[in-house]
Amino acid sequence: MASPAIKQESTQPPDKNRHLSWLWSEYSVIIAFVVIFVLASLLNPRFLDVNNQLNILMQVSIIGIVALGMTIVMLSGGIDLSVGSVLALVGVVSILSLNATGSILLAILTAFSVGAFAGLLNGLMVAKGRIASFIATLGMMAGARSIALYIADGGSISGEVTSFTAIANSELWIIDYPIIIFLVMTSLVYVLMQKTRFGRYVYAIGSNEKAALLSTIRVDRVKIGVYSLAGLLVSVAAIIETSRLNSISSSSSGQAYELDAIAAVIIGGTRMTGGRGKVLGTFFGVLILGILNNMMNLMNVSPHLQGFVKGLIIIVAVVFQKRE
């Protein structure tokens, strides 16, 4: 029994170097965030302005909430390409419901049920239909967008109940509601993933699905839950998006949101194949994307070039994560 004992010794970080690499592998995204933050504040003095800071948070809140759901899906080993289209569909249907009933509560409930239902369908396709998540959600992406376009006749729909706009346009002290909702959602998802059975199961399935099944986890049910939850979080984002301008465009709302959300999750250090990653990582990933956008706007970089920078950051982030 000497050999395993020796092995154990060697897994201990004996020197400083190993300690640093541990710090880097666990918190690389936070370090990257700090570096970018400091860099941004040196490059442009206006960056540190409180209003600008709140502005960044406000701008990332919608993508941030979508990215939380994406994190759960990707931790389970899947991907959800349908988030942007589902967001548009949820927005369109909930505005219709709002205009028809005049009730904000009903509009919100409608939003939740449409989003969760779309997610449920994704989950059923992936878990029961054994369709690769990429394909299943690609189908949902096309389908949901098409239905949104059909219902809204290709255009935008505006709300007729003005108090609906209060959801996204009110402030608590100086902090906008969407920021608060984003922060609350982040903490809820964090608790769900770290402190509950569901979260543990999601990590297990993403890491080794067969072993998870043989550990008597109801893999199918957990997966259905994962996609439904992602759909539900898209509903929350859709309500904010719709309420902010009191209207939703069936053609352009939510366009390419899936890419931003996936980018944030990847920058946040979640592994593409699942099983490894952190909700907090995604939170900082979202903030990094937000700061980059903000900086480029402040420095008058052409909006056409902004995608290039974003792409570069994603690739650099993944290259660094591969190192470990």
């Binding site: 543990r200 990590y203 297990a204 993403g206 890491s207 080794n208 072993a211 043989l214 099983g275």
Partner: peptide, 14 residues
């Protein structure tokens, strides 16, 4: 307790 520990039994990221 399944065979092929790595594939069937351990969840290596946990």
């Amino acid at each position: 307790v399944p065979k092929d520990r790595k594939e069937n039994a351990i969840i290596k990221d946990l």
